[in-house]
Amino acid sequence: MSNVEFLDARTLRLEQTAVPPLSPEELAAMDRFWDEAVARQPALFDGPAVACVGVETQADGALLLSWAAATYRYRALRRVEGCSWFPASIFVTVLQPVEDGGLIVGRSSDLTASAGRWGLPGGSAEPPADGERLDVAALRRHAARELLEEIGVGCDPEDMTAWGVTRGEHGNVGVHFLAPKVPAALALKHHEALAHEERVRGVGPELDRLAVVRSVQDVSDLGHAADFLPLVVSRYVGGEPTGA
């Protein structure tokens, strides 16, 4: 948990900026490392993504996230030695509590870039469509979509609470939302049906297993987990939301 921190985010603002300029050599190295990654894992997709360019606490106490429209390819810059820009990402997650205590976590399937890793339902933020804004409301809607797509549980975005913001590996910023409680058996049933439907279609689920965790020890027992998960679970079971 030492490499992850909660950011003071009583108010969260997002502001679009440009991708920092890169040299031709850096761009060529990025493309080379990306192509190598795709060769190892053909399921990788160079889709649209939001790159976190800066994190700043403003005079009124709000947390400002500066972001740029990029693609997943830019993450290959992390492997370029001495690169002038170290790209981070902005992602959302959903804390889905169950009625008898604990949070639902899922294991990423072999079809994903983070195969075998346990985490909360969620995903990387994407640039908004033309004319739309990337703000907390947009992130909340994205989180609700991820919850439905990954475990089959529907939730009105307005029923989700902005719960906290973390910064962890590579400076990646997670915006975490809290959903209303559901029965654990119902969530597992929805996920089972969703996974079956996706396997029939030949796609396969993003999360191949679900579990309920009630402590940091439960997270440790799972094995490989997202860097933010132990701290988020610790804060949740301790009743310490940070706000956003």
Rank of each mutant, 00 (worst) to 15 (best):
residue 6 F to M: 14
residue 10 R to N: 08
residue 13 R to M: 11
residue 13 R to Y: 07
residue 17 T to F: 09
residue 17 T to S: 11
residue 19 V to A: 12
residue 24 P to V: 08
residue 30 M to V: 10
residue 33 F to S: 05
residue 38 V to T: 10
residue 42 P to M: 11
residue 44 L to T: 05
residue 45 F to T: 12
residue 46 D to C: 09
residue 49 A to N: 02
residue 50 V to L: 10
residue 55 V to W: 02
residue 55 V to N: 00
residue 56 E to N: 11
residue 60 D to N: 02
residue 63 L to N: 01
residue 70 A to I: 12
residue 78 R to E: 04
residue 80 V to Q: 03
residue 84 S to L: 07
residue 86 F to P: 04
residue 95 L to M: 11
residue 99 E to K: 09
residue 102 G to S: 04
residue 110 D to W: 12
residue 113 A to H: 10
residue 122 G to A: 04
residue 122 G to R: 04
residue 124 S to G: 13
residue 126 E to L: 14
residue 126 E to S: 12
residue 132 E to P: 03
residue 133 R to C: 09
residue 136 V to S: 12
residue 145 R to Y: 00
residue 147 L to E: 00
residue 156 D to W: 00
residue 159 D to K: 13
residue 162 A to H: 02
residue 166 T to H: 03
residue 172 N to K: 01
residue 172 N to E: 11
residue 172 N to H: 10
residue 173 V to D: 01
residue 174 G to K: 00
residue 179 A to H: 02
residue 183 P to T: 02
residue 191 H to E: 07
residue 196 H to P: 09
residue 203 V to Q: 14
residue 209 R to V: 07
residue 210 L to M: 12
residue 211 A to N: 12
residue 213 V to Q: 04
residue 215 S to I: 08
residue 220 S to A: 14
residue 222 L to S: 01
residue 223 G to L: 06
residue 226 A to Q: 06
residue 233 V to M: 05
residue 233 V to C: 00
residue 237 V to C: 11
residue 240 E to R: 15
residue 244 A to T: 12
